[in-house]
Design a protein around this nucleic acid. Structure first.
Lengths: 132, 132
DNA sequence: ATGGCAATCAGAATTATTTTCATTTTAATT
DNA sequence: AATTAAAATGAAAATAATTCTGATTGCCAT
């Protein structure tokens, strides 16, 4: 149970926060829009307002508990932050999102930033692909 | 002047389109939100409605004349598509956007997609950096 | 228990963008 | 050059995603 994580984030332990965090924990690696979560919570008889979902997700994001992605769709999606960095590959035909990690790529990015006189803080990368 | 490009895109050559395209051509490599362009046009005594700006930018995008980027800000930004692919680096302190191209990176991306059984169609990458 | 402050709810507000529809402009044709 | 149909425009309304507001509720240290 996520009580500790919530407390460590400087937030009060409330039912909505626990329920949202629990759901994301049980669905590692999957992406959910705020409204998806709203529906999921409703299905589980957890009546959490949409505004609360958005608020909690933002708080969780700043706390490093979840990460937020803005793919091509207009709605942002969220997933549990497992601490293991990864990038995304989107199948343009199916819309399916594949997560991957490539250390050579990670190194190259640091290198490129350095070549321009910068320090790499973070990056975002999405590959749009299709089955060959 | 951009009459030819507009015609080739299957669009009628109108004043708003010419003025927007001319402005972007004179500002290669710079990014503008729809509202920036709206203001720019107004400053130049070209009274183009904001709806038209959005409409024309979308048409130009599908025609491959401009490309659209969604960085961290909420507003999308547009720039002239010079045909030369490049990625972006954002200075997290100044907000400044630096364009760059790295062929090693491009190759690696193709490679990664292939390793997962996919063909790379396109990609989007933003490096968040700061001065060292 | 209870008092204070943070969290929640529901709905209103905001922001970016798109759509609608009446009017104007373009470009093809006479 | 005048005619005309189709496409483009402007202004305002509509939409979509997200954030804010104000009243109420819930958490927790005393």
């Amino acid at each position: 149970m996520g009580k500790k994580e919530i407390k460590d984030a400087g937030l009060k332990v409330t039912l909505p926060r626990l329920q949202i965090l629990e759901f994301l924990t049980n669905n590692k690696g999957k992406h959910f829009a705020a409204e998806d979560l709203y529906d999921e919570m409703k299905s589980a008889d957890h009546d959490i307002g949409l505004a609360t979902i958005y608020r909690v997700l933002n708080q969780f994001e700043t706390a490093g508990l979840v990460c937020k992605h803005q793919f091509e769709n207009t709605q942002a999606v969220y997933e549990l932050d497992t601490g293991e960095h990864h990038d995304h590959m989107v199948d343009v035909n199916t819309g399916k999102v594949i997560e991957f990690f490539d250390s050579e790529l990670e190194n190259l990015q640091v290198q490129i930033a350095e070549n321009h006189g910068f320090e790499l803080i973070d990056h975002k990368m999405v590959l749009y692909v299709k089955k060959k």
